[in-house]
Design a protein around this nucleic acid. Sequence first.
DNA 1: CCCCTACTTCGACAATTGTCGAAATCATAG
DNA 2: CTATGATTTCGACAATTGTCGAAGTAGGGG
Lengths: 127, 127
Amino acid sequence: MTAVTIQCCAPIAREPLAEHEAAELAVLLKAVADPVRLRLLSMIGSHAGGEACVCDLTGAFDLTAPTISHHLKILRTAGLIDGERRGTWVYYRIVPETVTRLGALFAPLADPAPASGAPVEVEFVST
Amino acid sequence: MTAVTIQCCAPIAREPLAEHEAAELAVLLKAVADPVRLRLLSMIGSHAGGEACVCDLTGAFDLTAPTISHHLKILRTAGLIDGERRGTWVYYRIVPETVTRLGALFAPLADPAPASGAPVEVEFVST
DNA sequence: CCCCTACTTCGACAATTGTCGAAATCATAG
DNA sequence: CTATGATTTCGACAATTGTCGAAGTAGGGG
């Protein structure tokens, strides 16, 4: 099952999110909004070779295999990771595009007009 | 105003998240992982003057005032917005440090790992 | 072939969450 | 002081979610 690759939405504080954009993003965010899944994601991403098999992951948790599998499925469905079976083991790796998209959503809030594709600089507005 | 950067946690794919870090971040992410709250956040952030009163927000939803208030409370408790009462109305504004912190979590993943398997290509998806 | 290990799917259950209506609080106007 | 409008708190309820054990699929080795 391969996931949807959606791309949309300027940084969250730039302009009001449309209803359907918000709904889409919420699915993605719900997928990361869990301690177990956050750790799974970071374990997979930082694992040597950029991938980890389920057997590398389950040991780190006090949870049963079905539960870990359930969380991995949610991450996969959201398009955050991608799994591949090689022989006995199933290997997961991060889908960088999706993670990057999340990063862009919460990009530093700047004044509404850096115009071109130039990098955005952080600027805090003082009250 | 000084640009405070709250630090916790390198980008998610950099190193395994500690259990308590994951728990903490999950609270923050749960706060944004809802369509209504995402829209609230973006409406507040992109509103003229950088702030919006509750009365500016409720009209955009098909929800009752108590429900909007509930969502605002969750955002506030998570440290994503800050509210201030001025006369009859309550004004909310974004707390940029917290939003920035989320952005840093999903910062573009650099070189994932010492080549041991297939390399991961980092691609930037822009809107 | 049968078994064993790795992983996923299924069905059930308790805990959490989003929503509402009713009632409370808070500030201004009369 | 009372009335009115803006917002929050409270209590209840249905829907969603995280977890488990049991059973299913897939691959490798005797």
